[in-house]
Amino acid sequence: MKSYISAILFLLLLTACNPEQTETPIDEVEAPPVEETEDEAQMETEENTDEISESSGFDGVLSQYAVLESFDTDSPGTGLGEGLEVIHRTGHQILAHGHQGHAVAFYQLMIVDEENQEIIITHRYREGEEYDELDALALLEDYELAFNWMNEKEPNENRLFFKWDSEQDPSTTELPNGTTVSAIEVDVNDTIYVFSEDIGLTYIHYQSPDTVELFGSEVTATNQKLMD
């Protein structure tokens, strides 16, 4: 009996010296939000501003209004209208092939002037000896050689193709289907070229006194893609 009691006491003592460890759950505490410092906020604002400036620069406008997209316009019954297709571009210079009134074809060289936010036609060759030389190169799809040949010639044209005024809000124009879209209007010698957002050249409004005298009113040529 004495030995039995001693054994029990020994077990109790052993248990007291080695208590069973239990894990106490720890509540997850959400870390307080880190306040943005003024410097970090300013840096983020500057980054956003840079993105806006980059997207709204002259290249952004050319893309947004599809200024260099191929087009073909027509005013049925008048013979008025123009077409243009960019066939080669090197840096800020552009070689294009086009027509006037579906009758007179031409090749022209244009320069993109980012500083003045405009595109200027510097060379234009209509059907003739120079045109035939360019056309022969173009038929071989040697557009770079045609571009170099033309670029080596003295400029024979100084005509506005497109201009953007960053201080002036775009206007709006109504498409043949009745949709109203944002547009940029370019006035070239009493002829208004209307470039619409995501479409490109949409209308050409011929408003010169000669046009009004000949047809009795102003004449509008419309992008044929919008007439189909």
Score class of each variant (00 low, 15 high):
residue 44 E to K: 15
residue 45 T to G: 09
residue 46 E to F: 01
residue 46 E to T: 08
residue 47 E to R: 15
residue 47 E to K: 13
residue 48 N to T: 06
residue 48 N to I: 09
residue 52 I to V: 14
residue 55 S to C: 08
residue 55 S to Q: 14
residue 56 S to N: 11
residue 59 D to Y: 05
residue 59 D to A: 06
residue 60 G to W: 05
residue 62 L to Y: 09
residue 63 S to P: 00
residue 64 Q to R: 15
residue 65 Y to V: 03
residue 66 A to Q: 05
residue 69 E to C: 01
residue 69 E to Y: 07
residue 69 E to K: 15
residue 70 S to I: 01
residue 70 S to E: 10
residue 72 D to Y: 07
residue 72 D to V: 04
residue 74 D to Y: 12
residue 75 S to D: 13
residue 76 P to K: 06
residue 77 G to W: 04
residue 79 G to I: 02
residue 80 L to E: 05
residue 80 L to P: 04
residue 80 L to A: 08
residue 82 E to M: 02
residue 82 E to N: 02
residue 82 E to S: 01
residue 83 G to H: 02
residue 83 G to S: 10
residue 85 E to M: 10
residue 86 V to P: 03
residue 87 I to L: 11
residue 90 T to L: 03
residue 90 T to D: 07
residue 91 G to C: 13
residue 92 H to F: 12
residue 92 H to W: 13
residue 92 H to D: 15
residue 97 H to E: 08
residue 98 G to K: 01
residue 100 Q to L: 08
residue 100 Q to H: 12
residue 102 H to K: 13
residue 102 H to Y: 07
residue 103 A to S: 14
residue 104 V to L: 14
residue 105 A to Y: 09
residue 108 Q to F: 02
residue 109 L to Q: 02
residue 109 L to W: 01
residue 111 I to Y: 07
residue 114 E to G: 01
residue 116 N to S: 12
residue 116 N to R: 12
residue 116 N to Q: 15
residue 116 N to D: 15
residue 116 N to W: 05
residue 119 I to C: 11
residue 120 I to W: 12
residue 120 I to Y: 02
residue 121 I to H: 00
residue 123 H to P: 10
residue 123 H to Y: 04
residue 124 R to Y: 00
residue 124 R to D: 00
residue 125 Y to M: 04
residue 125 Y to V: 00
residue 125 Y to Q: 06
residue 126 R to I: 07
residue 128 G to Q: 13
residue 129 E to W: 13
residue 129 E to H: 14
residue 129 E to P: 04
residue 130 E to F: 02
residue 132 D to T: 07
residue 134 L to E: 09
residue 136 A to R: 10
residue 138 A to D: 01
residue 139 L to Q: 08
residue 140 L to V: 00
residue 141 E to W: 03
residue 141 E to H: 06
residue 142 D to Q: 15
residue 143 Y to C: 14
residue 147 F to Y: 15
residue 147 F to I: 05
residue 149 W to E: 15
residue 149 W to I: 02
residue 149 W to A: 13
residue 153 K to G: 10
residue 153 K to F: 07
residue 156 N to T: 00
residue 160 L to V: 06
residue 161 F to E: 02
residue 165 D to C: 07
residue 166 S to E: 10
residue 167 E to Y: 00
residue 167 E to M: 03
residue 168 Q to E: 10
residue 168 Q to A: 14
residue 168 Q to I: 08
residue 169 D to P: 05
residue 174 E to H: 01
residue 174 E to F: 00
residue 175 L to K: 08
residue 175 L to E: 07
